[in-house]
Amino acid sequence: MNADDWLRAFAAELYQRRVGGDAARHVVAEAATHLREGGGDPWLVFGSPQAYAAAIVESIGTAPGPRPGPVRLHARGITKRYGRQVVLRDASLTVRAGQIAAVVGANGCGKSTFLRICAGLVSPDAGEVTVSGRLGYCPQQGGTADFLLPDEHFVLVGAGQGVPRGPARQAGRAAARQLGWDAGNAVLARHLSGGTRQKLNLTMSTLAQPDVLLLDEPYQGFDQGSYVDLWDQLTRLRDEGRAIVVVTHLLNQLDRVDVVLDLTPAHQGGRS
């Protein structure tokens, strides 16, 4: 991890720990100046980004986090069978505005199916889902057009909501920048790397300003920096009052979420 990566991870940690925006910017700028003028490995100078962020929080305190708002997504009693195999049994989840929920579980336990049911793309055998407001969905893969440019994807999504082309392009590029990606280059989607393509996928799902955002393992192919950017953006969206559901099998970020739904069947040690 070079100095830039360290600073980025540090900024993300501060943000995650709810250090106020101006204070966080000031601390990061100070650390950057120190590294630039003094040189040296940030890990030796400051330690890990997490540890240094914790020390900063202790000394300057944090901004109070927004309280969770009204319920935005309520899924209850979701049961789904494929043939004789029961994939989901009586799964329930409630997510409020300003919350991130993680759907976790072993491979094949129905995480993606649960999300597709919440998005209304698949019908369950039992149960129902109530959504307040607009819904956004980012699939695990696919969901883009091979022979279109990123800008054209933004125009396509924007037209669905009656947004004119220019503003749709600008909004798409701005959302992509939040993920550390310059979407202005004229590269067809099929020529994008796996991680960049997933950023396009993610950008498309946030472009519609959804109140409920459903993300199916959105970090596929992401490098470390992009992964940090993703969680930064999710935290930002949460603080704006969005309800977010993330399907994940990476458990190291569970401390950053508010609700966890474990779909691992009980006999395998699940706690759904």
Partner: peptide, 15 residues
């Protein structure tokens, strides 16, 4: 066939 995966999400965006 190529639009099969894209169309459901376009539907969610207002189409």
């Amino acid at each position: 066939s190529a639009a099969r995966e894209l169309e459901p999400r376009l539907r969610l965006t207002g189409y």
